[in-house]
Design a protein around this nucleic acid. Sequence first.
DNA 1: GGATAAGTTTAACCCAGGTTAAAATCGAAA
DNA 2: TTTCGATTTTAACCTGGGTTAAACTTATCC
Lengths: 198, 198
Amino acid sequence: MSENKTEIDLLRTILGSAGMKPEAFELSLPHWKLKQYKKGEFYNEYKNVCKHLGFVITGVFRIYRVNSDTGEEKNMLFFTDHQFVASYKSFLSQTACDYYTEAMVDSVILYIHIDHLNELYGQSHQWERFGRIVAETAFHEVMVNTEGFLFKTPEDRYREMMEKHPNIFNSVPLYHIASYLGIQGPSLSRIRKRMVGR
Amino acid sequence: MSENKTEIDLLRTILGSAGMKPEAFELSLPHWKLKQYKKGEFYNEYKNVCKHLGFVITGVFRIYRVNSDTGEEKNMLFFTDHQFVASYKSFLSQTACDYYTEAMVDSVILYIHIDHLNELYGQSHQWERFGRIVAETAFHEVMVNTEGFLFKTPEDRYREMMEKHPNIFNSVPLYHIASYLGIQGPSLSRIRKRMVGR
DNA sequence: GGATAAGTTTAACCCAGGTTAAAATCGAAA
DNA sequence: TTTCGATTTTAACCTGGGTTAAACTTATCC
């Protein structure tokens, strides 16, 4: 715990500002572990049940699916600094994962095992609330994506991404962004070109 | 409560088969109310915080958004018999709703107020679990939609809809289906025509 | 710095869905 | 059964993304 102090402090602060009482947070102290990922390492893999909830100290992760016929990858979600990372669908339902979740750059996370999380749910209402908020966050994240596909053009979505996650562009190649937006590389190039001319 | 008996029994059975203990379910009895909707009536409206969780005894509801510029409507989700209905995003976060939720045919639901639900969460782990499952269901519903937009063609989505919700086609005009699939009416016609020729 | 690999853009062609308006069909009601 | 309105289909034209392969640009590494 000594060497994780800075990271735990960060998590404490962030959860604190979301309403978590210090005493409740202390209950979780024995369970958070620090882990480093090299670029390309997996947080969770296809067919594996996602057992951990992670908190990204620093880094970027992506959830992607592989088309078994063509081998193509498509990105579902990105996670970056100070976000919770999990292969949501698998984590929340504790079922085999349809996706890969991978570090896109060298990354550091704090993580907790779902068994410990379930213990905490039983020990304190604060943590129950936390659990519900995690599910809600996942819901919200995905809802915003669906709304994007339904109500916006790829160009809109790209513009939004640049506004909301400008930092991701530093560490993630454009073809991954294109995939996330639901389009192909050349289309993103066209959009970018179109946008230069206003 | 006497006249709602049949409907309550249905709900009891369904929750029971999802693991809800009878004693826990009894706690909720005073709180469920029956409500009838005429076609076109709203379950929840734009800017209104959705305060109720409904259980569809019979009927069809849609969540849709109106484009404030053009006045166009686009459908997000459908709910039908034996599903829980709520304007999820608003209900889960208790914030003003971006959508309209409307009965598409004459419908009957049992509903419960979120305050009572929160009471139940405090009274019993069974209900807490129920609450988490509601959030998870919402998540799953929307996740499947996002996956559809990302990984499937409109034609695939239409085919899937016919397999999974064949009943909806009886009560919902095709242009609402098209909207749900993210396409325009004429496109759905083309898809249908294409499909006849296998 | 030059070679090599990775990433991005461009070009050319194709096709599906968007758009608009008209035509056809269906349904309910008179 | 006729009529009116709602729904669905068709037609014609347009646009933007898909696809493929080549060209170009940037990193990276020896």
